[in-house]
Design a protein around this nucleic acid. Structure first.
Lengths: 210, 210, 210, 210
DNA sequence: AATGAATGAGGTTTCATTCAT
DNA sequence: CATGAATGAAACCTCATTCAT
């Protein structure tokens, strides 16, 4: 991931503009104007408007991945790792929140798009990470509940992220992560029969990678 | 809410197309072709492309509202009502799922749009309903946890809805609702100190209505 | 000129609307709405939107012609007739002023249009009338000056009509006609060499009728 | 007033087309075809079709203003200046005649349009110029007759201009100006009681500038 | 590397007119 | 006589992209 200064400039300005008005509604013209460069120059750095979106996403994923990786390299208890992981989700998404909101809104579905693939890879990565963390914390007995737990933990995270995004709330991420840790505990302790089959997530993620 | 047959036809086809390709990326041309009518006819039934979006939303809200209202009128235990409520969310959103996904993706932010107002009203209504149901089930001692519980329950619902939407999974909504009912039980029983203040949701919803 | 009640209703409402917004910018829809009839009905009475314009013009010409004819039938001095003629011009055009203004603005040039022909016939009629009146007042010696005098008298009339039209001024038409009578006298008394050839107007009007 | 070559090309071709078929009836398509450029290019030079009209008008006013200004700077008798002024009116309007005719026909009334304002400013300027010239030639005793004289002189000019415009007559402008100079003399010498009040024009022009 | 003029396909919308009822 | 749903051509305008300089 080596990116020229100019390319980064375009990415940064574009993130802001996309966040404000959406992808379709932001013209290349507006982007180049915001960068103080010519329209022609844009195509020197990006093959198309869509490829810019792709680059933005790449940069974002790169950042999150690095942070998550650092969590695993740390020498702390599984629970602390899970808590840290939750915290990172909030921190990162807080920074890119407007852009993420745009992505949610605009990303056109076509399942073959490069961008879509990227999003799915990211989701799979998130699923894997969560699984590892949950098994780390609750032992292998949790395994049959992984699909449900993954969905539910992601749901809880999303619930609070929406608050951050939609209402620009400044929340104490550390406290929130700690709070959620105990909610996850509650959920786990109450589990009996899983709703989803054990290999549910697996199946989905397999579809993604093939 | 009386809607002519033709208008309803357009709405239905449009929901499908919007779901597939997004709002901006679906042309009026495509919609009318899918309906087997002329481009001019479209504007007989809708003032503009955007007003179609508005109508779609109205129809959706109308349907959900009626169903939810029927839950409250029923003569069953609070828990059954909550379970039924969860079930309705899944059923309804299953039907309109693709369209909802599109809405999430495309709805341009401007906070003054009629459409945006409609969405917020719907959210407030959802919050109120949830609150009433939760208090019904868990008593007034739950009150200080209402903001967190609202966010979390909505998060759990969203988690599974995403499954439905993204992967077109046919799930057993009744079983899912029952499953979630017990998860909510677990969450409630583990609650200690709230993360959000008691009047948090209130504040947000107030901002919406003023 | 026998016109059905409904047809007259449409004509009247259309005159108002055309005057307000112009011909091109007034839709048949608006006209029929103003009349409280259906769009289909319009085409029962008029072959097309343009034919409506034609009808309006016909009605207007019919009115002016009748009034002018009555002047000639009167038993008064030539000068009084000329004065009366001037007065009629102001009165009539005052009534239809807004519509006339629209006509000036919008009438598309194409020299073959029925409407254009009608306008030219009307102009020729005006020229003939003026000629007869001027010769009546100033004798046959005025003949060589008829082209110039026609142009100039029409110019003077137009100058004041513009005042009426553009600024909605309520002027005393009788006084104005009398005032202009003396101006015409001044002009005639000062004439030496004509600027236009004697048969100038003739040539033009001939072109019109062939 | 610096205008790019291409912009000027569009203006020139547009003037011709507008003159032939009117503003509303001339499509941007037709204009660009006449210029040998693409539809998209048009919007590189003009924000909208209406703004083109505005530009055309600006160019025209600019030209006339410069010519009129040069008359005042000349070192000749007042009468010669008036004659020259009349001549310029005919010359300029001859060149833009068709377009002017279109303007008369199409300019939609709304009194707040930028274009409308421009037209009124131009008229006021014309009134002021005429007043100055008339006072220069006939002395201050003419003052109480200025409103009537302004209207009438403008009427006379218009009478002949219509000839030029409607019938594409090539007239000898110098001879015509000289001819009209004597007609104005006649009119002035015959004046007794004014028809319009002395401050009439003033009032109107005041309304224009406020 | 950088420009910006030029393109043209495609978008939304309007509207005069027709025709089955 | 009357209706109003339906049509489809044509209008204005936007925008991603290309290319000669």
């Amino acid at each position: 991931m080596i990116i020229s200064t100019k390319k980064l400039l375009i990415i940064e300005r574009a993130v802001e503009l996309f966040a404000k008005s959406g992808f379709e509604s932001t013209s290349v013209q507006e982007i180049t104007e915001a960068c103080g460069i010519s329209k022609g120059s844009f195509y020197l750095y990006f093959k198309s408007k869509e490829s810019l979106l792709f680059s933005i996403f790449e940069v974002f994923i790169d950042r999150v991945s690095k942070k998550v990786a650092s969590v695993f390299e740390m020498d702390s208890s599984p629970k602390d790792k899970l808590e840290l992981f939750l915290c990172i989700q909030f921190e990162e998404i807080d920074q890119y929140s407007d852009f993420i909101l745009m992505l949610l809104r605009e990303q056109t579905k076509p399942e073959d798009t490069e961008l879509f693939v990227l999003m799915q890879q990211m989701d799979k990565q998130l699923n894997d990470t969560l699984k590892e963390l949950l098994v780390g914390v609750y032992g292998i007995t949790i395994k049959r509940h992984i699909p449900d737990m993954t969905i539910m933990v992601k749901g809880l995270i999303k619930g609070y992220i929406e608050l951050i995004i939609m209402y620009n709330r400044n929340l104490d991420f550390k406290k929130l992560a700690n709070f959620l840790l105990y909610r996850i505990d509650s959920l786990v302790s109450g589990l009996t029969t899983p709703f989803l089959e054990e290999d549910f997530i697996l199946k989905i993620d397999d579809k993604k990678t093939t």
